[in-house]
Simulated scan of single mutants.
Amino acid sequence: MTMAAVMESRPGKQAWSETGRIARVDIIDDLRKAEPVWRQLEQSGEFCTPYQRFDLMAAWQRHVGECEGMTPFIVIARDRDGAPLLLLPLGVTRASGVRVASFPGGKHATFNMALWDREFAARATGADLETLITAIRANAQADVLALTRQPQRWLGLQNPFALLPHQASANDCPLLIMTPGAPPQSRVSNSFRRRLKGKERKLQTLPGYRSHLAAEDGDITRLLDWFFTVKPQRMAAQQLPNVFADPGVEDFVRDACMSKLAGGGRAIDIHALECDDEVIAIFAGVADGHRFSMMFNTYTLSGNAKYSPGLILMRDIIDHYAARGFTSLDLGIGSDDYKRLFCKDDEPIFDSFVPLTLRGRAAAAGLSALTRAKRLVKHTPALMQMAQRLRGALPR
């Protein structure tokens, strides 16, 4: 697909196509200038994940992206009438002299996707994507696209980026499918529920014991204060790096949890199990009316931890969203044992590394090989055990 012309204009560069549904591609380096189109695609409920909401991504760029030197690289494709067909939210950083365009959010976003006009997404072809990539390549602001952790399908449609060359992501994402109107035991078995009920009886004797979704600013602040005190201790005990200690991350989380969405709710929802004396457990994630996707969690350091409060809260969350007609729930990247207690399936996710320049070809090959190596380690028990031993032996 050849481009008829490339020209400079505000707010970004534009490229025009002679054929195909994509007639123009705008490249914008300012989130505020992209906001009207971004919110239009997001709020129309077209085809996107809640991780790419403007409020969430704007908070991340403000507090983390800027600290990491990421420059917004927002790609908007339009039809001949100027109507947006997709918005691809990216940011450019430099690594070893290579300009890498990737999704914002880092490890804190389980899934990455463009925001699509649903009708266009359902009919998008390889030629459409070739037009898009050609326009991005002509912009010359990045050497390689690192499009990681993309779901193969979302809300019943194939992700059009699955038409690009791709490979399985390094990690899997455990998934629970929920059928509206199905009995509770279809989500959590009766035997597991009985076990959790037995443990919960111990907690129910605590004054003010309750399970709830935090709605008030004061509750959200109080729960986050507790989380940022307890989580580092939990991660240190497990000899894991504390990703919440990275520059700007705590401010990002607090900002997003406080951000109110136009349709109600918050950019990040916090579910909590607590009593009058302490917070016992929290799970926080994003929800869009179809899927709840967990972002972070932790549980008490007190003796109440022995009653499995995290599992009890997870049961409550599953029932909460099932009652509201949600059709799926995931517990984030990784195959921790507790996730498999609830999630028996996996969400297929993939990575695409698309070279844009000659230098980008080598970078794309290297990133692809690194991802394959990580996946091999994570799916080979002996290699995974060796990696864990090495990590535990490293000075901290």
Rank of each mutant, 00 (worst) to 15 (best):
I76M: 03
D81T: 15
D79T: 10
L85E: 02
S102W: 01
R39A: 10
S44P: 09
T49L: 08
R39V: 11
V25L: 07
T71Y: 08
V100W: 01
G65C: 07
A34F: 05
A58K: 03
A34V: 02
A15H: 06
I22A: 05
V98G: 06
L31K: 06
D55A: 14
A95I: 12
L85R: 01
T19W: 09
C67R: 14
D79V: 10
Q61N: 13
Q61W: 10
G105Y: 03
D55K: 07
R10H: 15
S44W: 13
E42T: 06
G65L: 04
A23Y: 03
P104V: 01
A59Q: 07
Q61Y: 11
P89I: 02
W16V: 00
G105K: 02
L56G: 01
D81A: 14
R10G: 15
V100N: 02
G82Y: 08
A101S: 10
R32C: 11
Q14G: 10
A101N: 08
E46L: 10
G12P: 02
D79S: 10
S96W: 15
I76G: 00
D55Q: 13
L90W: 01
L86F: 06
F54G: 00
I74T: 05
Q43T: 13
Q40K: 12
G97T: 11
L86Q: 05
T71P: 04
L41G: 00
R39S: 12
E35R: 14
G45I: 11
A95R: 15
A77I: 04
M70P: 00
F103E: 00
M57N: 04
A83Q: 14
V98C: 11
G20N: 09
D30C: 13
D81P: 00
M57G: 02
L56F: 12
E42L: 05
A58Y: 02
E68F: 10
D55S: 14
L41A: 05
P36Y: 10
I27M: 04
F47A: 06
V100C: 07
E66D: 14
R21S: 11
T49Q: 04
V98S: 08
Q52K: 07
Y51S: 03
V37M: 06
E18T: 12
D55E: 15
R62Q: 14
D79K: 09
G12L: 06
V75D: 04
I22Q: 05
L87E: 00
A83K: 14
E35W: 04
A77E: 04
E66M: 13
R62M: 10
W16P: 01
E66W: 11
W60S: 02
F54Y: 14
R24E: 10
C67H: 12
V98L: 09
G91F: 00
A77F: 03
R32A: 15
R24P: 03
I27Y: 01
T49K: 07
W38R: 01
P50N: 09
A101H: 04
R80T: 13
W16Y: 13
T71A: 13
V37T: 14
W38Q: 03
Y51H: 12
D79Y: 08
R10P: 12
I22L: 13
G20P: 04
V64D: 02
G106A: 07
S102M: 10
K13D: 03
W60E: 05
D30W: 07
L31A: 09
S102G: 11
Q40V: 07
